[in-house]
Write a protein that binds this DNA or RNA. Structure first.
Length: 938
RNA sequence: GGGCGAAUAGCUCAGCUGGUCAGAGCGCCUGCCUUACACGCAGGAUGUCGGGGGUUCGAGUCCCUCUUCGCCCACCA
């Protein structure tokens, strides 16, 4: 493709790009060309670990759930990753960004079940195979949409390596991990009370059962003491027991008191009568009972409360199950006669009401009080979770957590922002075993088979391959019905997407460990911590060295954007209206590290104007370049003799260096210098908003506002100097585009392709990141141009202060030292153009009303105000200014007289304060003189 | 009940290891369609940096406390 061929689908008349940047017409074509050129495809052969000459840089994309299309939160997540990936690529790393999606077990199953419910069906009606087939069809569709969305926002992922947590390859990884852990004794089958969702009919992990503050009731029930010797006529005493879930009392097998609780010491070993059922249950002593809470007596229901379960085990108590999997009261296990006919078959909440009634009638309900407490809800369907005794598979986490905790403490893995380290440490130090079985159909089947023919029966077979028959007895085997927690595939993601468990995989050898993981802090425990544990468990190393934890996208009321609230923003809407660059710029530039980003879903224009405006500005700088500098190739900057450079050229080149350094500093090192992060680097870097701001300031406030204005005349005047200006302009703009490309890839690429001298077939996406010039001493011309800017600023301010119409040119007198005077003579026409002011060079101050400006270096500007200003008003203004100045000066000089300050403050601070005081004093004297001259002494 | 974080211009926020910062974007006011850009240009206003106390020569920047919001964790029946 030649440069004359337009990138947009609708070329502008006259061969120039249109004044208004049209992202919709530009972005898709550019993205297509990147793909065709293979810009995002990583090649292991080029990477140093496998014989190439480049360091590898790898990221794995947190796989979005295939349940729904992406919202702006995903846009944020993937934009951050893309900025990092593109920057790494430009830095010369062999960059691999692995995209993919997650099958999202329970979440996806719920969606399909909801669809079925609309058709009046249940999953059981379909049967397991048909249900799974239907889910696969759904996932294929949404998964495809998600990948399209990612491309639309410009994600430079390597699509040839697109992964999915439920492919055969990933299933092998899942099974291998399970078997390895089982062989190491880290997976066990446990009879435990777990969180159970009676609607989803599955167990939930601690993280999936979300506690929610709820107002409920605390029922005080009296349990009569059974075997106390009673004096004749004496009322039988009772223990008062509080509960929030009275229906569970049908499963009570004991009441517990604290062993140190003297009030009840005598009762330990005796019995109480369980009301309604009228059966005797023992009083046990257990630490779990808190003497401070309520009466200090707690009922023990081992099958329906996790803590009670532990107490039950310690005291070897029976564990009757009285609530079934649907949350309905029934005699499930070991519960002979425990559920009265009146309650059998009732929903748990209905049963609660009924049972409370019964207690009242028996006179066993002492009182009921309002009680606020946390009740766990299913994170998918919001049903109140029911603790339930069942057989589940668990991973023993403590041994896995150890190296993962040490890695963060040692700086092998850093968390940004650092505040999350404490949270991570706390959680990892108190880690609990991970229940990995889910009673679902959608997910990786647990690789466990049972042989009932064996003796003993229920022989457990854990295998990498599906066994055809029982290895011991040759009998038939049945696979465990359950599937694995969806995170059991996610925690292997950085390895499995690169080929694990095949350790000979080229990708695994080349690109593992990965570098940066970008995700949200709410899944530190679900995912990040577990990936680190898996990394050490299966590969012997951390899966990445940096975890970048970004904030949440919220609406104007601070609510998290979500589909259920309907306050989400579809990134594609933004892309369609303002372009992917606008979306990306707004998100990256507007968000501090780890901070939330507020957007208004009702006003996309307001939310994304910043980004759109910026893209347009860039576009117009490009237009300026093409209009005024033409499209003929320019000289390389190296071929321009330094002596030929004008003040403005030297200045903008200096500013470019400063900008590059600032961007580099904000981004920080891409990888730790050695095998871990040390010292300052631990918490530094990836300040993408600072990087964006430095680049923006350079290109807008320096390049566009000053440099372009300064060289207009030169560009239009044929000759040697024109060529110099063109060379510098093209060079500087080229570097600016490189700096900005990671954030706004489309508009920068579109412009870069049009730069004079662009070589066909080369892409900004794979061009090199700018390198700042070696730190040389600042050219004196830089300072001179700075002074020039200050003079123009001062003149503009003066004009504005006095309301001079912009059409009117004014005069100003300069009292300058010889050096500055010569400089101003040189730049006379520039000042005249930028400030609409004619400079005159004099040694004396003109009389009459005038505005004075003192500039650093001793240059003084005097702008006569004859005919521009009301003398009386000006006197008032001057007096007010003098008063303010004197106050400040007094404070400043007081500080300078303070020995503490002078002796202990850094010398550069003291020096600058002295200089300031000098300046202010001069200015004060000047003001006084002017007031005297203008207003008379009074 | 613990732990963490935040309170800075009308709004959304930057301000890293105490001394060039009292700042940016959006909004607002004034003047400009100046041949790249009105999605723009030039100029401008607005803040006892949540309250109070302390450390220091010096504090948005460190310590204590209070207030108000978030977030995470927690077995309190």
């Amino acid at each position: 493709m030649s440069i004359s061929e337009p990138l947009e689908s609708a070329p502008a008349p006259g061969g120039l790009p249109p004044a208004q940047y049209d992202p919709a017409a530009t972005e898709p074509a550019i993205y297509e060309r990147w793909l065709q050129a293979g810009c995002f495809t990583a090649d292991a052969a080029r990477a140093s670990r496998t014989g190439g000459d480049r360091d590898a840089f790898t990221m794995v994309m947190p796989p979005p759930n295939v349940t729904a299309i992406l919202h702006v939160g995903h846009g944020l997540n993937n934009t951050v990753q893309d900025v990092i990936a593109r920057h790494a690529r430009m830095r010369g790393f062999e960059t691999l960004w692995v995209p993919g999606t997650d099958h999202a077990g329970i979440a996806t199953q719920n969606i399909i079940e909801k669809q079925l419910a609309k058709e009046g069906l249940t999953r059981q009606d379909l049967g397991r195979d048909a249900f799974v087939a239907r889910t696969i069809a759904f996932v294929d569709e949404t998964g495809g949409v998600i990948l399209e969305q990612l491309r639309a926002i410009g994600a430079s992922a390597d699509w040839s390596r697109t992964a999915y947590t439920f492919t055969p390859a990933l299933s092998r990884a899942v099974r291998e991990a399970f078997v390895q852990l089982y062989e190491r004794g880290l997976i066990y089958r446990g009879h435990r009370v777990i969180h159970w969702c009676p609607r989803c009919l599955t167990s939930l992990s601690d993280e999936e059962a979300e506690p929610r503050e709820t107002t409920g009731a605390l029922y005080h029930v009296s349990y009569p003491i059974a075997d106390e010797d009673l004096a004749p006529g004496e009322e039988r005493r009772a223990l008062s027991v509080a509960t929030t879930r009275p229906e569970t009392m049908l499963g009570d097998v004991a009441v517990a008191v604290n062993p140190t609780d003297e009030r009840y010491a005598a009762l330990v070993g005796k019995h109480v009568v369980l009301p309604i059922l009228d059966i005797r249950i023992p009083v046990v002593a257990d630490e779990y009972a808190d003497p401070e809470f309520g009466t200090g007596v707690v009922k023990i229901t081992p099958a329906h409360d996790a803590n009670d379960f532990e107490v039950g085990r310690r005291h070897d108590l029976p564990m009757p199950v009285v609530i079934d999997e649907h949350g309905i009261l029934n005699e499930v296990t070991d519960a002979d006669g425990r559920v009265p006919a009146a309650l059998r078959g009732l929903d748990r909440f209905e049963a609660r009401t009924r049972l409370v009634e019964m207690l009242k009638q028996l006179g066993r309900l002492e009182r009921t009080e309002v009680h606020r407490h946390a009740v766990r809800h299913c994170y998918r369907c919001d049903t109140v979770v029911e603790p339930r005794l069942s057989d589940q598979w668990f991973v023993r986490m403590a041994p896995l957590a150890e190296p993962a905790l040490a890695a963060v403490r040692a700086g092998r893995v850093r968390l940004l922002p650092e505040k999350w380290v404490g949270v991570y440490e706390h959680w990892m130090s108190n880690i609990r075993d991970w229940n990995i079985s889910r009673q679902l159909w959608w997910g990786h089947r647990i690789p466990v088979w049972y042989c009932s023919a064996c003796d003993p029966p229920q022989n457990v077979i854990v295998s990498r391959e599906d066994p055809a028959a029982c290895p011991s007895c040759g009998g038939p085997v049945v696979q465990d019905e359950d599937v694995l927690d969806t995170w059991f595939s996610s925690w292997l993601w950085p390895m499995s997407t690169l080929g694990w468990p095949n350790t000979a995989s080229v990708d695994l050898r080349t690109f593992y460990p990965t570098d940066v993981l970008v995700t949200a802090p709410e899944i530190i425990f679900f995912w990040v911590a577990r990936m680190i544990m898996a990394g050490f468990a299966f590969m012997g190393d951390a899966p990445f060295h940096t975890v970048y934890l970004h904030g949440t996208a919220r609406d104007t009321q601070g609510r998290k954007m979500s589909k259920s609230l309907g306050n989400g923003i579809d990134p594609l809407d933004v892309v369609r209206l303002y372009g992917a660059d606008a979306l990306r710029w707004t998100l990256v530039a507007g968000m501090g590290l780890g901070a939330d980003v507020m957007l208004d879903p009702a006003d996309l224009e307001k939310s994304f104007a910043t980004g759109r405006n910026f893209a347009t500005k860039l576009w117009n700088i490009g237009r300026f370049l093409l209009v005024n500098a033409g499209t003929e190739p320019v000289r390389a900057l190296d071929d321009v003799s330094p002596g030929a450079l004008a003040r403005a050229d030297v200045w903008i080149l200096d500013r470019l260096d400063v900008a590059v350094r600032e961007c580099d500093r904000a981004i920080g090192p891409m990888q730790p210098a050695r095998d871990r992060w040390i010292g300052e680097e631990l918490g530094a870097g990836l300040r993408l908003n600072e990087y964006a701001e430095s680049a923006r300031r350079f290109v807008w406030n320096e390049l566009a506002d000053w440099y372009l204005e300064a060289i207009k005349t030169r560009l239009l005047t044929p000759g040697e100097d024109q060529q110099v200006a063109r060379a510098v302009l093209v060079h500087v703009f080229d570097r600016a585009l490189r700096l900005l490309h990671p954030i706004v890839p489309f508009v920068t690429e579109a412009l870069w392709q049009r730069l004079p001298g662009h070589v066909d077939g080369t892409f900004l996406a794979t061009a090199r990141w700018p390198v700042p010039a070696a730190d040389t001493e600042t050219n004196v011309l830089v300072g001179e141009f700075e002074l020039l800017r200050q003079i123009v600023d001062a003149l503009r301010r003066t004009r504005s202060d006095y309301g001079v119409p912009s059409s009117q040119t004014i005069d100003a007198f300069v009292l300058a030292d010889p050096i500055h005077r010569q400089m101003l003579v040189d730049e006379f026409s520039l000042v005249a153009r930028l400030a609409r002011t004619r400079l005159a060079f004099v040694e004396w101050a003109p009389t009459g009303p005038a505005a004075n400006v003192i500039l650093p270096g001793g240059t003084e500007l005097v702008v006569p105000l004859e005919g521009l200003v009301d003398t009386k008003k000006e006197c008032g203004r001057l007096r007010a200014e003098l008063a303010g100045l004197e106050t400040q000066l007094t404070a400043l000089e007081g500080r300078l007289r303070n020995p503490g300050f002078v002796e202990r403050a850094p010398s550069h601070v003291v020096d600058s304060e002295r200089a300031k005081s000098e300046e202010w004093r001069k200015r004060r004297d000047l003001l006084r003189a002017r007031i005297e001259g203008l207003c008379g002494a009074d």
